[in-house]
Each structure stands twice: as C-alpha cells, then as structure tokens.
C-alpha cells in the first residue's frame, strides 16, 4: 500500500470543507453552525499545511498559525453574540430568530 500523498490530503480537506458548508446551511442550532464554520476553516488549514509539506516551503504553515488565531477571535465574538441572544430571546435556534425578513 502506497503512503498517502498530496492528493489524498487535498481530497480529505475538500470533504471537510463540504461537510462544514453543509453544516452551516442545514443545521438549525447556531452553536452547531459555529462549529461547522470552524470545520470549514480547518479544512483550509489542512490544505495549507498539505501544500506546505509537499514542496512549497514553510510559508503555508506560518499562515495556519495566523488562521488559528483569527478563528479563535471569531469564535469568541460569535459566542459572545450568541450568549447575548440567548439571554434576550431564550433560544439559539435559527427558526426562532427570523424577525428580519430575508
């Protein structure tokens, strides 16, 4: 059995990205939606690291550190808004917070 190569990593990362996107679109609980967003970001991270490992130097891995930091900030803000929303409306389900017409 041959060892996994760049393409394998990329396929996994693409699958992760799709799973995350599907979660954002389909799931009704905002917490799960936030987690799905994290999966999408990590799919990108995986692709960056894979490209970096297979011949593109270390730049990609440095980029990943930045992404992780930014993602942490994003989640912190997202959770803060969710908490405020839960305090005010008592729910974090998408279907319950549709006052604004889309």
């Amino acid at each position: 059995m041959e060892p996994p190569g760049l393409n394998h990593w990329l396929v996994v990362s693409a699958m992760l990205f799709c799973i995350g996107a599907a979660g954002v679109v389909l799931r009704r609980n905002l917490l799960v939606v936030l987690m799905s967003l994290e999966i999408m970001l990590n799919a990108a991270n995986l692709a960056l690291v894979a490209f970096s490992r297979y011949g593109n130097g270390l730049d990609g891995q440095i980029f990943v550190f930045f992404v992780i930091t930014v993602a942490a900030a994003e989640v912190a803000v997202g959770l803060a808004i969710l908490v405020a929303l839960y305090r005010l409306c008592g729910t974090v389900r998408v279907s319950d917070i549709a006052t604004l017409k889309l």
């Binding site: 990329l10 990362s13 990205f17 995350g20 996107a21 954002v24 967003l37 999408m40 970001l41 799919a43 990108a44 991270n45 692709a47 960056l48 894979a50 490209f51 593109n56 730049d59 990609g60 980029f63 992404v67 994003e74």
Partner: peptide, 15 residues
C-alpha cells in the same frame, strides 16, 4: 462562511 470560502481559495492559490 465567506471568510472560510476565501481562505480555502487562498489555500488553493498558494498550492
């Protein structure tokens, strides 16, 4: 979500 899409695009461009 847009940022994630953008980031994935960046990863591909980088690759």
């Amino acid at each position: 979500m847009a940022s994630a899409i953008l980031l994935y695009g960046m990863a591909l461009v980088y690759g």
